[in-house]
């Protein structure tokens, strides 16, 4: 077993209620949920693999492919929606040349949408890694992605 998994398991006692926290720890460590880790969790908790897989696939937080260096989340909350979030999403998709749920070829950015960041009064907003960027406009977006070191030769 992977050393990293051992150190994750060291913090848990193997109860069924730990499935989701375990998956969260795995994602924190690896950036995603590698398939074999679900098997290891199932053995650790002593439940069928399907239980772990079932939980992992149910929740929006978990991903099964590696994530890019930077995680871009576009808020699709109601306030953001009425204040232009769809346009912001399209613009980012064009800027990064990927669709929602994908990662750029150079592995720099992953793009996803989230239900609501809770910054509704500063809508529309996006979240890059753990930082919320408020009152988004196409202009601000261009600035952010230039600053983030866009990996091309413009």
């Amino acid at each position: 077993m992977d050393r990293r998994m051992e150190s994750i398991f060291a913090k848990y006692s193997g109860m069924q209620e730990e499935i989701i926290p375990l998956l969260q720890s795995v994602q924190e460590e690896y950036g995603y949920i590698p398939e074999e880790t679900m098997l290891e969790i199932a053995r650790f908790i002593k439940v069928p693999e399907s239980k772990v897989y079932g939980a992992a696939t149910f929740y929006a937080q978990f991903r099964f492919t590696p994530m890019g260096e930077n995680r871009v989340m576009v808020c699709r909350g109601t306030a953001c929606h009425v204040k232009g979030a769809p346009m912001i999403l399209e613009e980012i998709e064009r800027e990064l040349n990927i669709s929602e749920g994908e990662t750029t070829a150079d592995g720099k950015y992953s793009l996803e949408t989230v239900a609501c960041i809770g910054c509704c009064s500063l809508a529309p907003c996006i979240m890059i890694n753990k930082k919320v960027e408020a009152n988004m406009t196409p202009k601000k977006l261009a600035k952010i992605f230039k600053k983030g070191g866009k990996n091309d030769t413009e």
Partner: peptide, 24 residues
């Protein structure tokens, strides 16, 4: 307990399922 992104888990019985480590 940290939720893992499921709106339905605001519903009482789904929330319970989620705390127990099941699909919400």
């Amino acid at each position: 307990k940290e939720g893992a992104g499921a709106f339905v888990c605001g519903e009482e019985t789904a929330l319970i399922a989620s705390i127990e480590g099941r699909r919400g």
